[in-house]
Design a protein around this nucleic acid. Structure first.
Length: 363
DNA sequence: AATGCGTGGGC
DNA sequence: TGCCCAAGCAT
């Protein structure tokens, strides 16, 4: 469909709809760039309902750039715990450092400066300055992509470079020059409430008369997706080492990669997906130092299945009762009461939760 | 350009 | 239940 067919009255039409039906959200009406930055980073690839409690807690603990700058990374990761994409928290820390060193501890006021902040790309930078300063920047997030792909009845797969260029061009074209901040939030609300992924409510849509998908095709047929690849699966033994004080042995993950710098019980790959590991077979697959601790019979806990973005994982947890605190140097022994303060990924929390439930059952 | 990076809810 | 995907960005 030719983009020239979209009249310049569309922004105003959407804004009228927004003024009446826009969502009330904790960050709506916010003009503080720091607070908008926090919301936009948390909302990357993350559902609104999930973000809200994290947003409130984060701002309560870290109300401004200097507070974020001064916050130890471990404490920051604890605030982020359970939200996912933990790199975002580290990047915000780096961003706060840049703001303290270069901008007197204040968030920048220009797009180019925001693009130098780690974790802030074109869409996030545009959103922050459009919403906070009413600067005329376009945004292009998942919601907007879906809305625009339907307007265009875009046939090329949404993730293709060609599609991205077309969508950015249209996003800029449609953005309101008068109220770009409200427009950015309006089109995201449209995607979240009306132009939804499944069962879009076209009869409520202020843009229905302009929509190629509605008028010439089927809205739910868009956006067109590329070919998907089957997710691989991994299997791991998860070792719960418990000493006589009832403390649990945990190790910190590497600083880079998956779940960077988070803590977990020691886990080891279990290459054989055919068999569920028995206590005996587990023994032979672990480093020798573990073998002396395997209290026969080792208690097995419920299997934990977890889906990451690019692979699935199955954890086989085993309980090891350790008579004395062993000479393991890389980790530490964690009391039950201190568990929540330590940043730990959801899949490992699942294991610990199951263990708690088993203990409760026995008592 | 393609891949890595979490999690929870909807269907 | 398994699959899809959300206010994307970095490498």
């Amino acid at each position: 469909m030719n983009q020239a067919t979209f009249p310049n009255t569309m922004a105003e039409k959407l804004l009228q709809h927004y003024d009446q039906y826009g969502r009330k959200l904790p960050w709506r009406g916010e003009k503080n760039l720091y607070r908008i930055w926090v919301s936009e980073i948390m909302l990357q690839q993350t559902a609104v309902a999930t973000v809200i409690p994290y947003y409130r807690k984060f701002l309560q603990e870290l109300p401004d750039v200097p507070a974020l700058y001064a916050c130890p990374e471990q404490q920051l990761l604890s605030l982020w715990q359970g939200l996912g994409y933990y790199r975002r928290a580290v990047q915000m820390h780096q961003g706060a450092k840049i703001m303290v060193n270069n901008y007197h501890g204040l968030p920048p006021e220009k797009l180019d400066a925001w693009l130098q902040i780690p974790g802030v790309g074109l869409s996030t930078a545009g959103a922050i300055l459009a919403i906070g300063r009413n600067q005329a920047h376009a945004i292009l997030d998942g919601n907007v992509k879906r809305v625009l792909a339907r307007l265009l009845a875009l046939e090329s797969p949404i993730e293709d470079r060609q599609s991205q260029l077309i969508l950015w061009k249209l996003a800029k074209q449609l953005t309101s020059k008068e109220r770009p901040g409200d427009y950015a939030q309006a089109i995201m609300d449209l995607g979240a409430l009306v132009c939804t992924r499944t069962q879009p409510k076209c009869s409520l849509c202020p843009w229905q008369e302009h929509c190629g998908a509605k008028n010439y095709s089927s809205p739910s047929a868009y956006p067109v997706r590329g070919t998907k690849i089957a997710k691989p699966c991994r299997w791991q033994i998860c070792c719960l080492l418990v000493n006589t004080e009832g403390k649990l042995y945990v190790e910190q993950r590497p600083q880079h990669g998956l779940l960077a710098s988070l803590w977990q019980p020691p886990c080891f790959d279990w290459p054989d997906q055919q068999s569920i590991p028995s206590a005996e077979r587990v023994n032979t697959h672990l480093p020798p130092i573990y073998q002396q601790w395997l209290s026969p019979p080792a208690s097995s806990l419920p299997v934990v299945k977890h889906a990451f973005t690019h692979f699935n994982i199955v954890l086989y947890p085993f309980l090891f009762l350790v008579a004395d605190s062993p000479p393991l140097v890389s980790g530490k022994w964690l009391a039950h009461a201190d568990r929540l303060e330590l940043p730990m990924a959801t899949l490992h929390r699942k294991v610990l939760k199951n263990w708690d439930a088993c203990l409760k059952e026995k008592n």
